[in-house]
Every structure is written in C-alpha cells, then in structure tokens.
Nucleic acid binder design. Structure first.
Lengths: 359, 359
DNA sequence: AGCAAAACTTGGATCGATCCAAGATTTGTG
DNA sequence: CACAAATCTTGGATCGATCCAAGTTTTGCT
C-alpha cells in the first residue's frame, strides 16, 4: 500500500527540489542554509525549482534531528494546562519567562496533563531544549520525570531540600517573618493561618501542631516556620495558632475561614500563604460583613498584580516574579552543568488590608 | 575532531542498548514502543541493558521524524509572547484551547516574536502539527506565513473576508448592533466610539467618516457598521458620531477619551470595541470624576472575566471564548481539507455600566 | 516425528534534513 | 600555458528512531 493514497499529495522534500534543479541534495541544502557559499546562478535555479514544486524551505523536523536543538523551552506543571492562564502567580512568572524568551527568540512549550500517566508521556516526548518546572503540587514526581530526560532544567519555588536540583526561589522563611512581624507590630496577637498544601496527597483541613514540621513542601513549611518564628518572639503560643491547610482554591479557603472564625477567640489577623488564598479570603470576609482591615487584617504572599487592585488592596509579600522567570530562562539557555540554586529576596508591600489591631 | 569532546558523555541511543542486550535495533525499538510483541525474557534483557547504560526511553527527536507528528498545536500571534498572559481576551480564549488540549493530550507551543523577521523564522521552524492564529494586529502577514507551512491552521476572529482561510469568529456586526440597540433603547442619542485598530499601520486618532469603510480589519469594520446600523435606525447622524481609533492600550484609550469629551456635545454613551478599551475608559472616567452609569453609559465587547468584577461591572457583548478555543483545537486535530468558517453567536450581558440617559 | 501455524526477531529502508571530506571547476599569477 | 589557490559541488554518513517484509524459532497437533 502506498503511504500517500491517490489524491493525497506527497510532501515535497529537499531532495525533490535538488533533482528538479539538477543539483545534489547537498547543494540544495546549502541554498537554504548557507546561501552565501552557492554560486548565484545555481542558487537562482534551485530557488526556481523550489517555487515550481511549491517547496517552502526545509522542514523543521529534519533539521531538528540533525541539529539536536529545538530552540524551545518547556514549561511543565502537574496542574492542568489552564493553570498557566488562570493562576495569577503562574501568570506573573510566565510574564518574566516570555520576556526572556522574546529577547532570545526561544519558543515556549507548555507541558502538563491532568493525570500522572499522561504527564509522564508528555514530559518524555516534549520537544524542548530544557525544562522550567512549576512545582506547586506533585512537584517531586515532576522533577523526577524531568530529570530523567537529562535535559537542563530548573525548578521554580520548591525543592530547596534536594541540593542536586537547580532551583530558583525566594527566601520563604524571611518573607513569612516579614508578614508576621508587620502584623505583630500593629499589635495583633490572635492569628489564623491559611496554609498552602503540605503535600501532594489531597488532605485539607485543620493542621495539628505535630504536622507542621512534617510538611513535604519546603515552601509551605518554611513559610509556616517564618510566621511562627516571629509570633513566638512576641509571646504567642504557636501551638495554639489555628492553622488550616487549603488547596489554594475558593472552596477550601472558605471552609478554612469557617473553621478559623468558629474558634472561641476569633483571630484579628490572618496570615495567608498566597495572594490567591488571601483574595478568596477577602471575598468571604466581605460576604460575612467582616470589615477589612478594621476588624481583621490580612497579609498575602506573592505580590501578584491582582493584589494591588483588590478591594481593599492587599498587603503582601512580593516575590520578584518577573526576575524569577527571566533567571529561569537564562539558567536553561546558558546551562553549564553547574547546579545553581538561587534564593531571591522578597519585599513587604504594605497596602490596604492591614491596620492596627482594634482591641 | 570528535563530536563529543573528552569528558562529555555521548548520549545513549537505542542502537547502543540493542547492542548491549545482544538484539537487533528493531527488537529494542519494539521493547519500548510495542512491548507486547516481544518475548518477556528478551524484554527484560533489553530493559536491563537500558538501565545499565542509563537509557531513558526513545528520544522524541528520532520518533518525531519517523512519525511525522509532533502532538502539539502552535498558537501564533504577531504580538510579543507576553500577550498570551497579559491580554484578558487572549487569556479567555487560551483557557478554551487548554481545556481542549488537556482533553486530547496535545501540547501547546506559543509562537510569536517582536520583529517580523523573527516571526517568520519562528513560524517556519515551529515543531507543531497545526496553527491557531491570533489575528489582532499584523494578521494578514501572519496568516500568509502560516499558510506557507502547509499545516492545518485556523484563524481566530479575523479574516472573514478571505474565504480560503479557515476561521472561527463571532458575528461582530450582530454583536455591535446589540450593544447599540441596548443604549438607544435606554434613550441615549449622543455617542462616542472607541475603536480598535483599523489596520496594521500604527496610526491612531480621530477617524473620518470616509475611513470607516476602508478598515482592513473586518472585525473592526463590522463592529463599526453594526453600531451605525442601529444608530441610523434611531435617527442618529452617524457621520457626526465621533469615532476614535485606539491601539487597545491605556495611552490611546485615554487620548481618545480626551478627544471625545472635548467635543461640543459631550457623549452620554460610549461604545467600546473591546472590554480592555472599556476597562481603561472606566479608569479614566473615574479619575475625571465622571460617574458611570449616571452621567455616562458604556458598553464593552468580548465578555472577559475581568469585566464582571470591575467597578462598576461592565455591560458587554460576550463572545463564547472558551467555545472558540475548543473549536479551534478541534479544527486542527480533526483537520480534513475542507475549509470551515464558523461564525458563533454573541450575547448581551447587561451589568452595571449602563443606565437610562439622564437628559 | 513431521508439518503447519503462531510467535518472535532481524536488518534494511525510511523519515528530511545537515555536515564534511573529497573531487571538480574556475580564477589568478608568473 | 602551467600550476596553485580559491571557489563550488558532490554524495556518502549521520542524527535517532519506527516500520515492515522476510526469515527464524517455538508451539501445537496428529
């Protein structure tokens, strides 16, 4: 059976053009890739043949195999693809990544998959020169898969535990300390913590003090430690600070607030581990008629653009998101075997969601 | 000179594994691609050899060339890459695209470039099975380049003029009519139009009535015609309706409003051709202390998520953005030579930015 | 044991280009 | 005019896999 059925046009190859022009395939290749070393007369002839046959230049598939370079960076996550467009933090980092890619002309491939079987296949078969790995959930498995490709890769915002993985992140503990210090200095003593996931199992709910140190995600753990470092310093019994593990989505954040505000002593200050959590919290508080910052103060984490235009605007710990994206791209493109682990500084942005404690 | 310098490890190929295991390369290939047709004993032996050599399964580069399929869709635009993450409309459509890709397991490659030379190269060398083309600006050139790749492609929201191009868009004229009818029925008679670009030259500013019919972008033209259809019906002299061509960004929108509100008869209703324009307009009006919708009503176009949470919320013409994304992916993946041009319906969402005319 | 059918393996061809050493042609110089 | 140098062109090797027709081995049955 012929590969191309009658009626279907067999794609034109460089070899066809060469034959038509009466030159060797090598010369035809040169016409497109190194036009300067081919005599003008021949060049014209080959180009004419190409036009005649409807050949539009070398097929990237062939070139790729030979060159071994794709000129594209893979950006991977264990979340569905829409994560890149829906999550404010992801968007902010992507913004930095796109800038760096635009500057260098590299393309971007988004790699992801809902189920873990597919993600494995997608990582294994992605045509990229390197990976930037978004490690929100399921990070360890993702890093594992990526590592197996033996391509340059860099993890974002996670994995500071494993020193053999290149990573770019922020000083989570210092950032959390900043947030807690801001609130304690405003006189707050009754806190509630809305945490990001501790691990990639799907358990959400109140967190016992014993669990705190067992968080798999070092980001979550470090932020929690940062909060508690400062609270302890100000005489707060951190074992009694109600902490609720959310899934970084509306439903679990609202459930968390129900929990926190059903405590005998309602918190006057909330520590949210992401702006997304904080923004969902703001919604819940507004609906409940709890005034921010008059009755309750709240500090987010990330510094996404949306936090500046919320109502009230959100006091938060800003990460240098663009910078992180840019550095990640750089790490892939200028990859040189050395494993770089860069910890960037964060910054407290005081805005409208925090005020002096009422009582 | 050896290709792999001393110290560098030459990547392991399938052939190396086959040799190590003492089978042919064909059998080794089957172990990975069709494990069921290889005897267990042999399979184990090959896998052991692969482990020993540190081989992690077939390199996608080779597979690609043979298979001819990349399993990825290219999404192209003439804007910088960040457009996909910054522009609300693009994000909304991307959301639909990602859903469809997640469902089918296809990957996404973002293709773009600041300058037109680079975009040509990027389109020509993108490793994708088809293109979805965002035609905001520079659309025609982009479509031209994409067409030359001879891959399936579909244009979004433009090009309804050229019947040989597959496209998915909305009924711009009907949508614009809906917007205008809503405002006229509220009693408005003094209008201002904030238009999207007419063509890909970079001219912005007031638009003369003669220019209206010469708009290259059919989307812009159709929306304008839709507005004017209805205004005329209600006895408005459309030749006198001040129309300002913006670049869909803050600066030109604000300049446009300066212009519209410097007219002798200030408009009581604004027709904005995109939500982005409308949202920038809302900002300007707030700063100027002009109350929406008490003094001025405004209707957007697109129905992006942000329009629901603005202050006031924006009355707008909603496009089925997710649906468009989904259909575009479908058009690429189930491509069958027939050129499909789908025109989807729009919907008027009445929200907080429109009210009965004051005078 | 003998023979056909089933199961498995082999190795050459192929995908579409680029690279490169060697051969062929043109140009330049004494 | 001869010879060297410079410039072009050639065709085989290569990138890393998959496909497939043909060949080999195993299994099943009488």
């Amino acid at each position: 059976m012929p590969k191309y059925a009658a009626g279907t046009v067999r794609p034109i190859r460089l070899a066809d053009v060469a034959k038509e022009a009466g030159v060797s395939h090598g010369t035809a290749s040169n016409v497109f890739s190194h036009p300067d070393i081919v005599r003008e007369e021949v060049r014209e002839r080959v180009k004419a043949a190409a036009d005649k046959l409807g050949y539009n230049g070398p097929d990237p598939k062939g070139r790729l195999l030979r060159a071994g370079k794709v000129n594209a960076i893979g950006v991977a996550t264990a979340e569905p693809l829409s994560y890149f467009f829906d999550d404010p933090f992801a968007r902010a980092v992507m913004s930095g990544i796109t800038q760096a890619c635009d500057a260098t002309g590299a393309g971007i491939s988004l790699v992801s998959a809902a189920n873990s079987e597919q993600i494995a296949w997608n990582i294994q078969s992605a045509l990229v020169d390197g990976f930037i790995v978004f490690c929100v959930e399921g990070g360890s498995r993702l890093v594992e898969l990526t590592r197996e490709r033996k391509l340059p890769f860099v993890a974002l915002d996670f994995g500071f535990d494993d020193e053999t993985i290149a990573a770019i992140g922020v000083d989570d503990r210092a950032g959390a300390q900043l947030a807690a210090r801001h609130l304690t200095e405003l006189g707050h003593r009754r806190f509630g913590v809305l945490s990001m996931p501790f691990s990639d199992d799907d358990t959400y709910g109140p967190v016992s003090p014993e669990r705190v140190d067992k968080a798999i995600y070092s980001g979550t753990r470090d932020r929690l430690h940062g909060y508690f470092d400062v609270l302890r310093e100000f005489g707060v019994d951190t074992g009694k600070v109600p902490t609720y593990e959310t899934a970084n989505d509306e439903a679990t954040v609202h459930a968390g607030l129900e929990h926190l505000f059903s405590q005998p002593a309602k918190p006057t200050a909330l520590l949210a581990m992401s702006d997304r959590i904080a923004l969902h919290a703001l919604d819940w508080l507004r609906v409940r008629g709890i005034s921010v910052p008059r009755e309750v103060s709240i500090v987010g984490f990330d510094g996404v653009p949306e936090s500046a235009v919320s109502n009230p605007s959100l006091t938060t710990i800003a990460q240098p998101t663009s910078e992180m994206g840019r550095l990640a791209v750089e790490a892939i493109l200028q990859h040189d075997e050395t494993i770089r682990r860069q910890m960037l500084p964060v910054e407290l942005l005081v805005r409208g969601s925090t005020a002096r404690a009422a009582d």
